[in-house]
Design a protein around this nucleic acid. Structure first.
Lengths: 353, 353
DNA sequence: CAGAAAATGATTGACGTCTATCAGATTCGC
DNA sequence: GCGAATCTGATAGACGTCAATCATTTTCTG
């Protein structure tokens, strides 16, 4: 009743251990007949290779690399922190995670970083997708060289890309729209959509989503989109301007970053009549604004979960297993009352013994 | 630069492998001096025991048991399904998960099940907490006998209970209240609170939460609480009654189960003027109601994540590690647009090769 | 049918740890 | 300082797999 070993398989197949091993590890020099018998025995016995024993024997270490945007955007920072946190936690499982930073939104730099990657030093790379020919080409090259490639946060339609881990941004935009509509039950509204840049696919997708949902409701109108380039200063000015121009403003939906400026503008308003505000990404500033009642909801893509899910998939890819399905990452809605416990700073890592 | 082995530690400490092993595994018969030298070497080298090699050698299998409520409540069913799904996925990691069903809310049955547990057959049990002396006593007994004990979904203040995995239900109730308030921006409201039973702590906690938040807003009033005992029929009747009695009803918050009856009652109303509806737990019925636009939001405690988190903790407990912090489970808000992809039925498990 | 090529079996030493045994060394009580 | 108790070192065989070698058998080729 014990789990069958390869020895058992060999015996059941009527071949030697060596032959069973040759089949299992595709070493060649096996007759079709013997291979069939072994495969059959594997099925019959329900044999599963003991990955841990195997990894022990071959001294295997999984080498995974994250190429993530540098810069001090809080969201990218939390992505990078999530990687470092996982790094410590996965070490006992023979997973060596490393992190390299590349200039944000710079497809040239990303392609360069990918091209300098030695396929013998890395089993799997993950990066934030950028739709550029050079990037796609490098992804294909790595795939051919035996390095599994996956995208996170934002997809890139590279042919060799084995998986994407991230949220559906159109859905996230629709979610924001749904909340806006909820906040306008029984009354008319005028909403200001703030975007970082039209060049960012995720921002555009969110815009499309919110537009879809709000188009349904005749009473809610959208002002023209303002591009604030993820800059707090521009953001503050743009919001000030909009509030002055449109006194009847009832909602603000910010699809990009740089929300610090937005919060400053709102702080100046009467809390009882301020517009309904929804922003993206739970970072220290947005969390504080939510707790202070300056804003109403934050839509988050849970970077820590994203990284964890990516690592699980990288692991499966490296072992040659099918990518586990999993429900994908769904955007989460935070209000003041369902915030996760504040992680104590510096508590990550260092699990003794 | 390789990871140090116990052999390296022994050498660095100037003792034999056998002595280092005696220290590491607390086998006794070691002088204080030798022990100190070994401990020091462990620290200096940053030695970590290779758990996988150790488990291989000692043929260890983690035996974890979930005692979960039986019955066909969708929520309990999804809990049980989550356990079965994890069971397959964790087998390669030497984790043997088993599931036993006990009558829901029956503390006698739970205590009985706990008492019949053989400490030699199980490393860790998880159950849905019930605050009864018999249950607490059994938890303490098991803890003494070396079986780690944790509660899920609902806590029990047992002294031996090593961890609780579940959401903060007061927070969940507040979250619902916040959404209700959002849906009543700029207008007055009258809300019907539906509860399963006052005997269930989680229901009462949610009620307290929603009351807290709505007390702040002078324009929103709460009707007297209706106990529907998680029964669809009672639920339907209660809602029908309330709609007749209070034509100005603008919101319904259902804190318990049996929402099928609620959905039936709402289906009969004019979709444009129906009250705002919030329920708990994303199960097939509530999901369908959300997709159909019958209700506005579902607050979910993510049973699959809860089980996964519980298993991670059980594993850590069994290895004698400190319980990893982790942000706990926060209740998630689902609207029509951020629903997880429907898991294809029967796709779980059976990962070949 | 001989010779070459291909397939198979048998075996061995890792990997890092556990568990056990046994002989030898050190310390202790008295 | 003698026997007993305690401590220490050395070693060996597992666990399930990998990777390699070598001898042998079978099959193919012409």
């Amino acid at each position: 009743m014990r789990k069958p070993t390869l020895q058992d398989v060999a015996q059941a197949a009527g071949v030697s251990y060596a032959t069973a091993d040759r089949v299992l590890n595709a070493r060649g020099n096996v007759s079709a007949r013997a291979e069939a018998r072994v495969r059959d025995a594997i099925d019959r016995l329900g044999y599963r290779r003991d990955v841990h024993a195997a990894n022990l024997s071959r001294r295997r270490v999984y080498r995974f690399l994250f190429l993530l945007p540098s810069g001090d955007h809080s969201f990218f920072r939390s992505l990078r922190e999530a990687v470092l946190a996982e790094k410590a936690g996965r070490a006992p499982d023979r997973v060596a995670v490393s992190l390299r930073e590349v200039r944000a939104f710079d497809s040239g730099a990303l392609a360069e970083a990918l091209s300098s990657l030695d396929p013998d030093q890395c089993d799997c790379v993950a990066f934030v997708g950028l739709d550029s020919p050079a990037v796609l080409e490098q992804a294909a090259r790595l795939d051919k060289a035996g390095v599994r490639v996956l995208t996170v946060v934002s997809d890139a339609p590279a042919p060799g890309r084995a998986a994407y881990v991230g949220i559906d941004n159109t859905g996230a935009g629709r979610t924001a729209g749904r909340l806006m509509a909820l906040g306008h039950t029984g009354r008319a509204g005028l909403i200001l959509p703030l975007i970082g840049t039209r060049a960012a696919k995720d921002h555009v997708d969110r815009l499309e989503g919110v537009t879809q949902v709000l188009a349904d409701s005749a009473r809610i109108a959208l002002l023209p989109v303002v591009e604030a380039l993820d800059s707090p200063d521009r953001m503050r000015d743009a919001v000030g301007q909009a509030l002055a121009d449109a006194p009847g403003l009832t909602g603000i939906y910010s699809m990009g970053a740089g929300n610090r400026g937005l919060f400053q503008a709102i702080e100046a308003l009467d809390p009882d009549t301020r517009p309904l505000v929804i922003v993206h990404e739970l970072v220290p500033h947005s969390r504080a604004a939510l707790e202070a009642g300056l804003i109403d909801a934050v839509i988050d893509q849970k970077p820590a979960e994203e990284i964890a899910a990516a690592l699980d998939i990288m692991r499966a890819l490296a072992d040659g297993l099918p990518v586990p399905p999993g429900p994908g990452i769904t955007p989460t809605i935070y209000v003041k009352d369902n915030l996760p416990a504040q992680p104590a700073p510096g508590t990550e890592g260092d699990p003794r013994k």
